[in-house]
Design a protein around this nucleic acid. Sequence first.
DNA 1: AATTTCTTTGGGAGCGCTCTCATAAGCCAT
DNA 2: ATGGCTTATGAGAGCGCTCCCAAAGAAATT
Lengths: 358, 358
Amino acid sequence: MNDLKLEDIAKLAGVSRSTVSRVVNASPNVGAATRKRVEKIIQNTGYHPNAAARSLASQRTNMIGLVIPRTTSAFFTDPYFPHLTQGVAFACNNHHMTLSLFLVGNQEDENEITPRLLRRGMLDGFLLQSGNSDDMLFKRLISSQVPLLVLGRPFEEKSVNYIDVDNISAAKSAVSHLIKLGYQRIGMITGAIRSTTSIDRETGFRQAMAEAGREIDPTLIAEGDFSESSGYLAMKKLLPLRPDAIFAQSDVMAIGAMRAVQEAGLQIPGDVAFVGFDDLPIASTLPIKLTTVHQPITHFGIKAVDLLIDMIEKGTKPAKRMILDTELIIRDTCGGKSVNRPTDQGAEMEGSALKKPA
Amino acid sequence: MNDLKLEDIAKLAGVSRSTVSRVVNASPNVGAATRKRVEKIIQNTGYHPNAAARSLASQRTNMIGLVIPRTTSAFFTDPYFPHLTQGVAFACNNHHMTLSLFLVGNQEDENEITPRLLRRGMLDGFLLQSGNSDDMLFKRLISSQVPLLVLGRPFEEKSVNYIDVDNISAAKSAVSHLIKLGYQRIGMITGAIRSTTSIDRETGFRQAMAEAGREIDPTLIAEGDFSESSGYLAMKKLLPLRPDAIFAQSDVMAIGAMRAVQEAGLQIPGDVAFVGFDDLPIASTLPIKLTTVHQPITHFGIKAVDLLIDMIEKGTKPAKRMILDTELIIRDTCGGKSVNRPTDQGAEMEGSALKKPA
DNA sequence: AATTTCTTTGGGAGCGCTCTCATAAGCCAT
DNA sequence: ATGGCTTATGAGAGCGCTCCCAAAGAAATT
């Protein structure tokens, strides 16, 4: 509790600083009796090693950062990020690491945060949410000396470490399902169009249509930005064109879009069917349950941390890649026959669903 | 970028380490010419001071922690926390501080995180979300030597620094409004009943009823835990007792409860009126807009950081208190005449709504 | 019994900064 | 010029750890 240092413990135990250090760091080369004696004194005095001193001497801070650029500023509007953060935090706990959160709000923040990230002695590594193509922060950080893992496919993939879900085939399976169900006028509400996420999901959409020999009506593609209101607005534009099914690139936008449909007095899925993306917990508690692509958000965060720590410990060459799978969850909004399956997003933190690494 | 140190810069500039240090730390006592020369070299070399070394020497890390105990594990289920986190992160940026996030998932995390928080040289101070009465983490941390500000009224207030909103009068105004509107069978859905937040809101409920000379029917009070599903379940229990109005202690629970009402084929507010608490952005985009108590969540986070930093710099004696105001926002779910007012929760981060401190 | 090998411990040199104090220089008034 | 004052710079002693290396025993080998 108080201001004891290693040296004080050493004196109390009648050993050297080195020995106490060994005990604190669980080094094997300490006699059993000595270890016990030192441990007891540490216990009694409530000694805690000073983190800064330890970092300075060991060149390790045991901290990693999670950076959300401002181009992704839909940040806490979309439950995606909280879930991700939860996964990251969970994994950090398992690895005895501390998580630092950098939410970039504006240009000023960006200038101020960048050096903090690049500074040595601060972070052992960091996770960077992939943003838009014109993201300057991204460009500045990408050449960082400290290990960096990008969340989501970056624009410039060359020798960048990243982790992502397979957005293309995920979107493809969603749209194929709609086609299989017989919908004729299938529309799409995109995410922020300069994000790779949105681009990949659109690619999946196009692939599914092409494979089915369908023409794409470009007027049935409306632009959103992953937010609820953008989904609502996009749907308002689409409604006069009478689409019979919509692939929304996120659940939150699907919810906004469905709000627009209901306001117009139309039925879901009777008049307009929906498939979303994310499988947020809310998808299964909506009045009309949302058919959507399940992506393991929390798990994604955990994997990201695991990979980053691996990079920190074993180096970043060759560049690391990891692509996680998704799964189409069929519920009520797509019409056809409904197969129910509870979402497990929220439950992941609990109990034994997630085994800790040994 | 590379591994330059203060000394290298000094050598390059032909000055002493001390002078470079002064330049880096914007100390006034440096000659203009010298400053310029040193700054240029720092610029060119891309030098960044080592954070660990600086922390060790200065006894300041410029990091603060945000700790969410596991008893509050509804964590990212409820948008409350993301909004709070956003405010905290925003304020940290303004103060050039780094935010560390501690999400306590389970007992093991708790044991592991506690020493990290208490350790010197790690955090300059931290924010601790108030949890349940039986929260051990809380008890262990409360006597911390490092400055600590509790978010929400703690159980044991004595000499504890905390910040809260005025839950009692907020709840009171919500319930009074329902009474004024003429509802006769007013029920309540509580939050986690061992949290001070829930206790205070219940007190407000009771005060409003008492002032109006109303009896309280205890069967019309159902227990929730701030989650959507708990609101739904609570309402299921309440429905057979035919309440005509419900005060839900959080918006999310109100949403769950309204789901139950609609499933039962009843009208809102015709059959059951609602008042929520929080004024999340979603409250104003629901099909039937939610009447609720606005609490400035993001702003709350900002104020908390400001206060904590003040404590770090000026000491914690006497114990600090801060209580923020709330406002009843009347929309559609309470019946009576609706006054619309857009929620500004999400907008707070943008533009000039929030002035940075000079 | 002598030699080698391991295990346990201590000593000391950093890690890269900050900060106090001493010194040197510049400035003004007398 | 001379003393007193302010301002700019440098030297050096830490901050509290880690980690390499050497030393001293103990144990094992010959």
